[in-house]
Simulated scan of single mutants.
Amino acid sequence: MLQIQNISKDMGEFFLDSVSLDISKGEYMVIIGPTGAGKTILLETVAGIYEPDGGSIHLDGNDITRAPPKERNITMVYQDYMLFPHLTVEENIGFGLKSKKVPSDEIHEAVQRYAEMLHIAHLLHRYPDTLSGGEQQRAAIARAMVMNPWALLLDEPLSALDSKTRENLRKELKDIHEITKTTIIHITHNFEEVFDLADRVAIMNEGKIVQVGAPDEIFRRPKNHFVAEFVGATNVFKGISTSENGIASIKIGDIIIRAHSEIEGDAYISVRPEEILISTAPLASPIRNAFPGKISDIRHCGAMIRLNIDIGVTFVVALTRQGFEEAELGIGDCVYIAFKATSVHLFPGKSTTE
């Protein structure tokens, strides 16, 4: 277990504000958040590059808060590779082991293993300036992994690569994690990396961690308005909530939406587009939230069609292409939408970070 407890660090423009996070051994944790949220400082503090102003870091029960980086058995890879230009790929990957005076045959065996895992064994004789960006990043990851670290820290490792290379390296990272069971903490802005790689995801904003959970939980049930906006949640509206017997009634403009919640006062709701039913006739089922409306826009998004439905506020509804064609819907058509109270996620409107 890596336990980060109330870590604070003030570097002026960038800072950490009482960050706490527990990471299990073997977990793949992805951290996301806007630029300047404190993600890189958090990783560098865990790695020992910075000492925190307050708080503590424990690794397997041992306090490493002020331990030098070389004693932490934690390695870090940045997006810009940082390979030694005067060393071959093989020498780059084996550099850390050589500095620890590991026997040369063991170094060769370890380098070969990770080079093969990352599909660069045929490049071991080459120098970094002869490699593509993807090949250099594979070498940088191999150099970190060859040290058999307790944790591997990745700071946007795929952001500088083209889409095809990103896709391939994403798969290789997943394979490496499954094979080695190394604990990985990975910063990214790419939601595909979150869903493909993360066991859990932490969202940071203004030096704080504002939500932690499984990827699907984060995207389906954002904790607050900031998280909802950051993950691109659709159908987010602000209203006033009153609650009775566990059923909240949220007034948004001239409509009332009902949800299972005891939250009262200023609040936001979100409803996923695919959880909204649409019909050209009133729906007979006893769904708590049912409204007449009019189609104001239709967008073709690959296999899905997104319709904007004006019911006093504009809801986005998602249909499969087949369902859309069978319904024969067009702009200006009068329709009915409905969604269950359990499909409405309600969160307080007081703060963007709490």
Rank of each mutant, 00 (worst) to 15 (best):
Q5D: 11
N6V: 04
F14Q: 07
S18W: 06
S18I: 05
V19N: 08
D22A: 15
E27L: 11
E27G: 07
P34V: 08
T35Y: 05
T35R: 05
G36W: 01
G36K: 03
A37S: 15
I41Y: 05
L42S: 05
L43G: 08
V46P: 06
P52T: 00
I64W: 04
P68E: 07
P68K: 08
I74L: 06
T75D: 03
D80V: 07
F84T: 02
N92D: 10
I93F: 09
V102F: 03
S104T: 13
D105T: 09
A115M: 00
A115R: 09
A115L: 02
E116G: 09
H119L: 06
I120G: 03
I120E: 05
A121S: 15
H122A: 02
Y127S: 03
P128E: 10
D129G: 05
L131W: 09
S132M: 06
E135L: 09
R138G: 04
A142R: 10
A144Q: 09
V146I: 13
N148W: 01
S159K: 12
L161R: 10
D162F: 02
S163E: 14
K171W: 01
K171F: 00
K171N: 13
K171V: 09
E172N: 07
K174C: 02
D175G: 00
I176N: 07
I179V: 12
K181A: 00
T182R: 11
T183Q: 13
I184N: 08
I184R: 12
I185V: 15
H186R: 02
D196K: 10
D199W: 11
I203G: 08
M204K: 02
G207P: 14
K208N: 13
I209E: 01
V212W: 12
V212E: 12
P215W: 00
D216K: 15
F219V: 10
R221P: 04
K223E: 12
F230M: 11
A233N: 10
N235Y: 10
N235W: 12
S241L: 01
S243R: 08
N245Q: 14
I247M: 13
I247S: 01
I247W: 02
S249Y: 10
K251H: 14
I252T: 09
I256F: 12
I256H: 12
S261R: 13
I263D: 08
I263C: 03
E264Y: 10
G265I: 11
D266E: 15
R272V: 05
P273Q: 03
E274R: 15
S279D: 14
F291I: 04
G293L: 10
R299L: 12
N308Q: 13
G312A: 05
T314K: 05
F315M: 01
L319M: 09
Q322N: 09
G332T: 07
D333K: 02
A338G: 06
F339E: 03
S343R: 05
V344L: 00
H345Q: 08
K350Q: 06
T353G: 00
